[in-house]
Design a protein around this nucleic acid. Structure first.
Lengths: 136, 136
DNA sequence: CTGTATCCAAAGGGATACTG
DNA sequence: CAGTATCCCTTTGGATACAG
């Protein structure tokens, strides 16, 4: 990586050589994906990005998510400062979640990726089939 | 989801009601994250997005990735049509990987997300610390 | 209604050894 | 050099039961 191959843009510079494990671990992108690359986070963020919702509404709309995972995902997003939690002290209790400004930013930053997925995933699926049949 | 809460933008419409598991499974975003949300794919895509590289170069630059995972990640990206593999029949053999136009598109679509991560992950980390100390 | 706790199966991923 | 195969530990996440 010293003249022929330019480094990829947008990474923590490091002293460049001298260590091998630098690139992966300080990488903010990896830190982000460690948190929202799981099975449900982006889905929840998107829904909350459109409008605040109750726990049960999220559960119903996502469909396929377990109570445990929804709870866990929401707690994680709350911890990250991406969503807020509001408890209405009624009986039974009502809890609603909303996106924070920071979370809204992230949803915005994910928009292009989501767009790409919607336009191109069929192409990817097709490539897979080609690969599987020709090499399979 | 019929008047008060608008649906989030950019999702497969469905017949809307009648099934619970719709939202999650047809979602192209989930399909994408299932493939590139893993530990190494985005990192590899970024590197190859900047310039083609040999297997060993990737291994060295990423540092922390095992041979097995690099191989597996590259195979998966190749299968998805995001990178190409070129074998130079020398002894020992030299294999280099390059991004495809489709893969380049994806790297572009991820740019905003990566940008956000680099600008905001410290904020997220701070939020986590606040959450952890206040809630104990 | 909104969780938490437990149990368990499956997937992810590292270390190591081996191959062309 | 560029993989593949194996072993094995860790993590993820679903099902279920229970609680405020």
């Amino acid at each position: 990586m010293q003249d022929g191959t330019p480094p990829p843009p947008g990474h923590p510079r490091e002293t460049d050589a001298a260590r091998g494990d630098a690139y992966a671990r300080d990488c903010p992108t990896r830190q982000l994906l460690d948190r929202v690359g799981d099975k449900w986070s982006v889905l929840v963020l998107q829904l909350l990005g459109a409008a605040p919702r109750r726990f049960s509404a999220l559960k119903r709309e996502i469909g396929g998510i377990s109570q445990k995972m929804l709870s866990q995902t929401l707690r994680s997003l709350e911890r990250d400062g991406l969503v807020t939690r509001h408890v209405e002290p009624s009986v039974p209790v009502k809890v609603s979640y909303a996106i924070t400004p920071l979370g809204g930013e992230l949803v915005g930053a994910l928009a292009l990726m989501i767009d790409w997925a919607e336009r191109r995933m069929t192409t990817v699926l097709a490539a897979q089939r080609r690969y599987d049949t020709s090499a399979g």
